[in-house]
Design a protein around this nucleic acid. Sequence first.
DNA 1: CGAAATCTTGACCGATCTCAACTTACGTGG
DNA 2: CCACGTAAGTTGAGATCGGTCAAGATTTCG
Lengths: 241, 241
Amino acid sequence: MNRCNHDSETHHCVHNEHGRLHSKACITLVPIFNHLDDDKLEEIMRAIKTAHFDKGEIIYRAGQQSNSLYIVSKGKIRIYRLSESGKEQLLRILKPGDFTGELALFRQSVHESYAEAMADTDVCMINRDDLQKFLLKYPTIALQVLAEFSNRLDESEKQAARFATERVETRIALYLAECVEDQGGSLSISLPMSRKDMASYLGTTPETISRKLADLEAQGYIRQVSGRKIQIQDLDGLLIL
Amino acid sequence: MNRCNHDSETHHCVHNEHGRLHSKACITLVPIFNHLDDDKLEEIMRAIKTAHFDKGEIIYRAGQQSNSLYIVSKGKIRIYRLSESGKEQLLRILKPGDFTGELALFRQSVHESYAEAMADTDVCMINRDDLQKFLLKYPTIALQVLAEFSNRLDESEKQAARFATERVETRIALYLAECVEDQGGSLSISLPMSRKDMASYLGTTPETISRKLADLEAQGYIRQVSGRKIQIQDLDGLLIL
DNA sequence: CGAAATCTTGACCGATCTCAACTTACGTGG
DNA sequence: CCACGTAAGTTGAGATCGGTCAAGATTTCG
């Protein structure tokens, strides 16, 4: 399964011509670019390559040189870190339109995290030099990237502050609140990940997730419909735990 | 002590002309700008205002509109967050040359954190519109800001991953390792903050910090010289805790 | 030199992790 | 379409880490 040695991902299923088909759909998804006019989009699309990764494949790993920005056009990507002692923490899950690989792109450095395809996924890739060129040529893109980074930094600091100060039950409750979608009147959730990933994301264990969800249900805040389906019974209550 | 209502900080001790004196010294400290030639620096300095904050004053607080980028020219600034349940987490301490206020500047939004002068401090301020103007006019600045954001995001995610996966003792050990300075042969540390702040930064309590430092000393990894002075006896040992 | 703040230490308790058994859901091949 | 095997999720019991509260020691600074 270790077919991904250095650079393997850039050799893997890269289509340039055929990519042109996908890239438009892909790139217009991306907040960073979608303010641009067609000419500029066209220009950027010429620089884009696409690649496919099978479920379970590693797209990049910590320590590897970073060469491009990856934009998800289909599928899902798990971004995670390994801490000093080797334990894994799930940072986020990318959906179509999200991008990754930026961290290492703006410093002369290497990836700090791992990216793994959670399903068969297609990505659009822009290499470092082309991206820098576009950022200098069209500074509004840089402003969009700055805005995106700001959001992500805010997210990350918020998450860190929660780890530092909140109990597990509270972190779970806050996470549930973030997942809420209004389904015809009632507030419901469909969790985007397994208990194991949720535990990794929230800095706990699957067992504790199970127990705390059961507690929240017993206290009447939520109702567990099925494994990943949850109904919120008392959102305000959840938020003041 | 609640003299800082909305906007108070922008009215507080703003000097424009006299500021000109400080700004050059200040701005050349900042990695974001110091690649620029003198003409551009001059232009930027004209947009800079300076302000002074007394020890303990709040420079901005969460929920406030963000209007400018703050660059520390003298003193120290504590940046912290309040979590949902109201507990404080120390995010970082700014020294001269560091900047803050960026988060809210690149989105149309408000501060998420608090900034408090830890000593009498001078800051240089660039307001939002001027900054955007410079970023568009001199895209290399934007690239520098992107690099800085990348670093900060990396730091924040690393910190979050540590909270999520490492025990307190390990977090303390890793923090100590980051503070190490080579003092003529022997590795020594002088902690930049109180136990209380360190606890807030590392997501624990002052009591636990005391205890764990005592443990680390008992195990021969460190030697506590005085309150904030520590000698490292076994750095490798610390790092595999 | 003394008051106040900071830091340390102790005793206790609770939250959460670990390990293990058990149950449920899921995907595959017959 | 069902049976089976495996992965995922749940539950329980016990152990541990780290937090809380309180007392005592130390440092800081006026």
